[in-house]
Write a protein that binds this DNA or RNA. Structure first.
Length: 423
RNA sequence: GGUGAGGUGGCUGAGUGGUCGAAAGCAGCGCUUUGCUAAAGCGCCGUAGUCCAAAAGGCUACCGAGGGUUCGAAUCCCUCCCUCACCGCCA
């Protein structure tokens, strides 16, 4: 969430930055400022009252110690109590209102973020490799069916539409890719592997900004007290929530494989062919906790770490920077990595690498003690490294052979145990 | 799931109704001393909110969270969360 002091001191700047996202956050800022004024006024009155009560109570203690009467004073303190309760209620209400409102307001896009309305205005930052020329390329659904890599019809029988069940070589390939990704990021890119819980508390979902705004997209359990994590970002970023880290311990770098659970409410019919958008998918996620000074350098590095996956697998991709109208709720700056899928004749988003600056850290009270001994909020970052089903799609569509088999890139041999998938 | 013991500052840990924002130790910072490494002595050292134009400073809150009792709560009571130990069940 935003720093209330920044909002208070530079409301026009905040409104201006928020306006680049589109939407009507300016009115929320005005409301926030009104509540903030009220809150502080109430708190000041409350504190004066408390100071009075504290002083009198001490006098009573002193009188009693000497065995003297204190009934008059006690009556006055009792009277203060009623006034206190009323004011206290007001102060608490204002505080809650302020926090709730702050939780609804998105992060300020980075000062240099490209201005734009929606995804169509995202500039391409770079491209790697070339589109393979495949005459009559089949798409992954046809390939998957003929090679029995997955079974969508029977998965629907188990769990409904939008679920995958990998089978045979498909299941093996999925597992091989997970191992390939984890090995790459932990052995070569210096991330610490983490295998976190998939089920997380409500507070964690608030910490990483999935809640309260996007509750409808989440799978909640036990009366929505717990949630199936929609990404490993949630458990991994919240790992140090409410902690004070030492500056020397930063940056923290984690790589985690987890399944991801998403309702995808409202996205029916959009990019839903085959296994491109599903309710449960595997992903290896990269998460960093850094100082404010290094977060942008770490962001570039994290993006490159994710790109390296596609480079090693020889898959053509492009990196786009999300414009102000498309950047996600909590992010200040995001790169999407989109891999080319010849069967789709389209780029598929396989990774979204974001710098949240202190937006998440403030929500989860994640701080560090800097060299001067001052406590400051950390910066948090994450990016997919990468999402499995779409990688799977690009891989089998890119490496399909004219005879219907798939010849895998050599680097996967130790993980998959074979060079090709055929009948 | 049951029973019991606990949750105090960055960490360890004392404190069972008022003078406790909280002893002591460790870590950190500053100074002094000794020819280095090191050690010793002295001092400083929690967080957040709020008042003031700001600094200085003041005030308030915070001893797991939320309620309650009381003139007054780290301390007593209730609920919840978490940790540990033992028992039960179980992959």
């Amino acid at each position: 969430m935003l720093d209330i002091r920044l909002v208070r001191e530079q409301p026009d700047f905040v409104k201006e930055r928020l306006a680049t996202r589109g939407g009507d956050d300016a009115s929320k800022i005005d409301e926030l400022l009104r509540i903030d004024r009220e809150r502080r006024k109430t708190e000041t009155a409350l504190q004066t009252l408390q100071a009075e009560r504290k002083k009198l109570s001490k006098e009573i203690g002193a009188l009693r110690g000497k065995g003297e009467a204190s009934a008059g004073l006690e009556d006055r303190v009792r009277a203060i109590g009623d006034e206190f309760n009323a004011l206290n209620e007001q102060a608490t209400a204002a505080e809650n209102q302020q926090r709730e409102l702050l939780l609804q307001i998105p992060n300020l896009p980075h000062a240099k973020a490209p201005i734009g309305r929606d995804a169509s205005e995202n500039p391409t930052v770079r491209e790697w490799g070339e589109k393979p020329t495949l005459a009559g390329a089949r798409d992954h659904v046809a390939l998957g069916e003929s090679l029995k890599l997955f079974d969508l019809d029977r998965a629907a029988k188990l769990s409904g539409s939008g679920f995958i069940c990998f089978t045979g070589a498909g299941a093996r390939l999925e597992r091989a890719l997970i191992n390939f990704l984890l090995e790459l990021h932990t052995r070569e890119h210096g991330y610490t592997e983490m295998s976190p819980p998939f089920l997380v508390r409500r507070e964690c979902m608030v910490g990483t900004t999935q809640l309260p705004k996007f509750e409808d997209d989440m799978y909640g359990l036990a009366g929505n007290e717990m949630f199936l994590a929609p990404t490993a970002e949630v458990p991994v970023t919240n790992f140090y929530r409410e902690e004070l880290l030492h500056v020397d311990a930063l940056p923290k770098k984690f790589a985690a494989y987890t399944p991801c659970f998403r309702r995808e409410a409202g996205s029916a019919g959009r990019e839903t062919r085959g296994i491109i958008r599903v309710h449960q998918f595997d992903k290896v996620e990269l998460v960093k906790v850094t100082t404010p000074e290094t977060s942008y350098a770490e962001h570039e590095a994290l993006t490159h770490d994710a790109e390296r996956v596609l480079q090693l697998l020889g898959l053509h991709y492009r990196v786009v920077e999300l414009c102000t109208g498309d950047v996600t709720f909590g992010s200040a700056k995001t790169y999407d990595i989109e891999v080319w899928a010849p069967g789709q004749k389209a780029y598929l988003e396989v990774s979204s690498c974001s710098n949240f600056e202190d937006f998440q850290a403030r929500r989860m009270n994640l701080r560090f003690k800097d060299a001067e001994g001052k406590n400051r909020f950390c910066h948090t970052l994450n990016g997919s490294g990468v999402a499995l089903p779409r990688l799977f799609v690009a891989l089998i569509e890119t490496y399909q052979q004219t005879d219907g088999s798939i010849r895998l890139p050599e680097i996967l041999l130790p993980y998959f145990g074979a060079a090709e998938i055929s009948f």
